[in-house]
């Protein structure tokens, strides 16, 4: 019998805070127990519950890749109570971490294939972990394309590394914003439209996408138009979660618990589930 306490977080210290945009902050945290930090292992796409004690817990993807383990990185968009409290924290402050939780991107099955990342807004966070993992294991994957969009340049998280992504010749990066903005040298247009313009080939390719529901809806349509099958599309869901371990009953879609069976699903798998997204 497994006697681990499912609800007791590891105490951790915030090592670095990065102000990404007006409403997104990135936290790099280190578990206080050096053994726990040393032995911490996770897969790209898994999530964690971050607690600010006294306020509560909320779910975030671990967006640093497993190949870089000096710290665990979470990017937090302000949405309500816990996220606002987290935004008030500084380096040195204490948080609780319950992680890793959930399933992960099928990166083994993706080996030898071309990869198309399509991220919108904070939806770039889960893609970042997989993208960096693949860049760290570059020879295992074919052509990698990234389409990353945000409302405006100031809403674009991970700005500081996007420039280095643009410079790489083993990564094709497209950046887009919703509307014209002075000095913006990249594409302007909604993600699904830009996707149709780039028109990547579905041949031996897997598309990985995450973003707000409306973007996902039209991106799926665009991918279909380009000839991607449901099996070739991978996405990650943001259901409301509480326990993260399949007990509290909050995150189910029919028989599927997003906290255990997800958050990563292929579009083909999502279509099998009852229609309750």
């Amino acid at each position: 019998m497994n006697n681990k306490n499912l609800y007791l977080p590891e105490m951790a210290t915030i090592n670095e805070v990065i102000e990404e945009t007006a409403n997104i902050m990135t936290f790099r945290v280190i578990l206080n127990n050096p053994d726990a930090m040393e032995n911490f292992s996770f897969e790209p796409g898994q999530v964690g519950q971050l607690s600010s004690f006294g306020t509560g817990e909320a779910t975030f993807v671990i967006n640093s890749p497993p190949t870089r383990k000096e710290y665990l990185q979470f990017s937090v968009m302000r949405a309500g109570e816990v996220t606002s409290k987290l935004h008030s924290l500084k380096p040195g402050d204490q948080v609780g971490v319950r992680a890793p939780l959930g399933n992960y991107f099928p990166y083994e099955d993706m080996k030898g294939k071309d990869i198309l990342f399509i991220g919108g807004g904070i939806g770039m966070a889960p893609l970042r972990t997989l993208l960096l993992y693949m860049l760290d294991n570059r020879k295992d994957y074919g052509k990698i394309t990234l389409l990353y969009g945000a409302r405006s340049p100031v809403d674009m998280a991970f700005n500081y590394e996007v420039s280095s992504w643009l410079e790489r010749d083993d990564l094709e990066t497209h950046l887009t914003i919703d509307a014209e903005f002075e000095g913006w040298p990249h594409t302007v247009g909604l993600i699904p439209n830009v996707l149709l313009d780039i028109a990547p080939s579905p041949e031996n390719c897997v598309a990985v996408t995450c973003g707000p529901p409306i973007m996902i809806k039209f991106t799926l349509q665009a991918l279909e138009k380009l000839g991607f099958t449901d099996e070739q599309i991978v996405t990650t869901l943001e259901k409301r979660m509480k326990c993260g371990v399949g007990l509290c009953g909050r995150c189910n879609i029919g028989t599927s618990y997003v906290c255990m069976d997800g958050p990563v699903f292929t579009y083909a798998q999502l279509k099998e589930l009852p229609n309750e997204l």
Binding site: S51, F53, G54, G56, E57, L247, G249, R250
Partner: peptide, 21 residues
């Protein structure tokens, strides 16, 4: 068996509580 988890604090002490939902 659904539940919620919430925090309560008084001064320098607090508790994380599970309650029926």
């Amino acid at each position: 068996y659904c539940f919620n988890i919430t925090d309560e604090t008084i001064g320098m002490k607090g508790t994380r509580i599970r309650s029926w939902d």
